[in-house]
Structures are given as structure tokens and as C-alpha cells.
Design a protein around this nucleic acid. Sequence first.
DNA 1: CTCCTATTTCAACAGGTGTTGAATAATGGG
DNA 2: CCCATTATTCAACACCTGTTGAAATAGGAG
Lengths: 227, 227
Amino acid sequence: MPFHPVPRPRGPKPSRIAASQLLDAAQAVFAQEGLQAASLRAIARKAGCDPSLIYYHFASKEVLFQAVLARRFPAVLADMHLLADPADARPTALRLWDVLLIYHRHLKDDPGMRALIRGEIVRGAEGLSPLLADQIRPLTASISQVFAQGIARGEVRPEIQPMLATFFLAKMQLEILDVLPTVLPVLMDVPPEAAVMTGMRAWLDIFWRGVALDPSQPLPPLPSPCD
Amino acid sequence: MPFHPVPRPRGPKPSRIAASQLLDAAQAVFAQEGLQAASLRAIARKAGCDPSLIYYHFASKEVLFQAVLARRFPAVLADMHLLADPADARPTALRLWDVLLIYHRHLKDDPGMRALIRGEIVRGAEGLSPLLADQIRPLTASISQVFAQGIARGEVRPEIQPMLATFFLAKMQLEILDVLPTVLPVLMDVPPEAAVMTGMRAWLDIFWRGVALDPSQPLPPLPSPCD
DNA sequence: CTCCTATTTCAACAGGTGTTGAATAATGGG
DNA sequence: CCCATTATTCAACACCTGTTGAAATAGGAG
């Protein structure tokens, strides 16, 4: 004889769980575990619902993952697209600084998203790359245009491959954002709260000299994001 | 009534499986799947034995993984230590290229190892497992010495912080090794088998110009690892 | 030949995984 | 008030995981 001590009520709870809440939970778990290791049960637990509910909103784990990405990317993409405007006559170094700032602005409050992007990029091409690639491609294209325009304006060495330079600049930015606050205070005499800005400037300082047609010219003054 | 069609013989096979063979198989599987995703059954299958046999030689999956690492790390450390010899009078750019080559030589076949190092570094300085920290610290110290010697010899800009430069150089190297073969063929017209070398050279080209006292001087010819 | 020990396998455990189909409850419209 | 739709849960499936205890075997020692 089966014993059901407290047959909890089925059906919708008083407070419904919106798809956005599921996305929040999914993002958090995906960020910590990665796509492969993250379990739907853990996501459901975090969202406070049954794993099956996920299948009501999303066709599969993979679709859920893609939905998490699709929620954040358009805003970053829009900013980056704006930056690539050919009419923008500011020095290329300054525009590249803006690239870093855009990354920082959109991802600083979202360590989950950073870990997610980083993890999935690193985790290898086979499984998930196609999903992520479709979102990332237009983004890197915009940055690449800034380099191409820099070459045309005689500010960037013509041997520089815009796409490759984009890859180096963006990848490093993505990788160091998380660790700067813990690493920089150890490496240099920098308080943790200033570590991100200091580290980003130091990185652009080296990178820009490596890419500029005239590296003897110092970086222009770089505005802080609060300006 | 259970039916045992062919009760295969138990006991040792004609050719015994040494612990080193298990380590080989484990390394191969860990390399392809990573620590978490690799299954003992897959390792056993590769080694041609039963999963239980692993427990005869190693206490757990984690112990097996550590044994795989312990086999690799000392060699990297020794190479890097040799490179930091102050008597080494070669151009600093060439020595930095050697840093990249050492990383590449020792880690190219071992994404599991790379993933572990990367993960531990991201997790922050204090969270680093003591075993790994003790092995990484002298490694970064060696690279840092090369930068310091470069400054002393008037080849590297004196403003460059050796530890910070080490951080940028080594972190990027660690991060791009995995993705170059899949990313570079897309970004540039480079076949996958040449992607790693091409990408490493391009990265050092930019980085060295960013760090050098006289960036107008081009990189010296960089030997391939086969030389 | 006999026994012992090191090595190897088998079978099972307890738990986790993505996924599905049916059942159920709340909600809103007619 | 009823009824259809929507949101949610339950229970189960088939499979995979790390791990363990006992059984079995081969080879060498006596």
C-alpha cells in the first residue's frame, strides 16, 4: 500500500514562475557549472519548481541555454554596433578603450554571464559553439571594423589583421575581468576596488603599443566609465 | 533462471596492465573530456580493462587525476627554470618566444591539464589548491625574471611591471591554446594544423611591440619547435 | 603438486541525468 | 456555474556515474 504523507497540491502556485525567473536560475547554474555539468534539476531547484516545468517553456536543455544567451546579447551588440560607426572620428586608441568599457559595463554586474561565455568558448567547439557563435559573430565584426578603420586612418599598422586583433583584445578582456580584483593587489600595489580599471588600462597600454603604427606616441587620456 | 552465455575468464590477462598504462589512458581521456566529464568506464575501456582495476591502483578518480598531473608538472617547471638563467644572453623577444613554446610543448596534448590550471587560476589566489599553487608560483617567477632581465638589458620598457607582464603573456597563452585551432581557420586563411604556431607568433608580435623599449625593431626570426 | 598472493573481473549499489506522458490544480471566458 | 486552457507536478523510464565487496584466476614459492 503506497503511502502519500502530504499529497502536495499540483497546478499553478499562487505566484507563477515566469520564464524570466527560469532564465535567471538557469543563468546562475550554467555560470557555475557550465552547460554540460549544469543539471536541469539544479536549475529547477533554484527556480523553486519542478524540472518538468522547464520543458513547458523550453524544448530542451540546449534551447534553454540559448535563451539565456539571447536575453543579454542584443544590448551589448547594439552598443558595439554604435561604436563601429565610420563617422566616429576619435582616435582609434580611444575607441578601443570604449570597447573595453562596453564589455565592462555590460558584464561587470553579471559574473554569471562572463563565466558562461568564457566557459563555453573554452569548453571546445563541438557541442555548443554554433549557438554561441551566431550571437558573437556580429559583435566581433563591429570591433573588427574599428581596427580596419584605424588602418585606413593610418593609426594602426597595416599588417595587423583586424579579426585577429579583435580576438586578442576581446578574449583577454573577457578573461581578466574576473581575476583582476584578486590578482592585481597581489602583483602590484593596487587596492582591489581600483584593480579593474588599472588592469584594463595596463592591458590596453601594452596592446595599443603593439598594434599602433606609431607606438612612440603615448595613449590619449582615457576617460573613466563614470565620466 | 539467469543465463550466462559465455562466462568469460576472470583473473589476470596474458599481458598485465601496469599503472603507467592506466595513467596513459587516463591522460588521454581526461585530455579530451576534462576531469568532470571523463568517466572511469571510458578510461578503463581505453586501457582495455575493467573499471574496478583503477581502484586497485588508485584510491579514487581524483587521485588518478592528480597522479596524471604529477607526472607532467615537474618537466614544465624544469624547462622554465632553465630559461630564466641570467647567463642566457639571447634577445628577450626570443626568450619570451621560448616561454610560449614551453607552454605549448608541454600542454598541447593535455587540455585536461590546461582546464585545471585555468580553472584554479580563475577561482582566485586564495582558493588555489596548495599543491597547484606551489607548482605554479616558481613557474611565473621564472618568467618574471626574464622580463626583469630584459629591463636591465635595456630591451624592455622600464615602466613594465614584470609580474603584470608575466600575467598578461602567460594568461593569454593559456587561454588561446585551446581555441586557436578552431578559431583561427575562421578568422584568417590558416589551416587548423598551422593555427597554433601562427596564432602564437601573431600574439607575441603584438605583445612584444607593446612591451619593447624600441618597438620599431622587428621581432627576431622565431624558431619553430621542431628546430 | 599445493598453497598464497597479486591481479583482474563481475555484479550490484545508490544516486544522478535528460526527458516524457499523464494527472492535477488554478485561471479566465462564456 | 461550467468548461477549456494554461501552468504545474508526479512518477517513471532508460541510461550513466563513482564506488565497493566478493569471487575468480594466474603465476610464483615452497
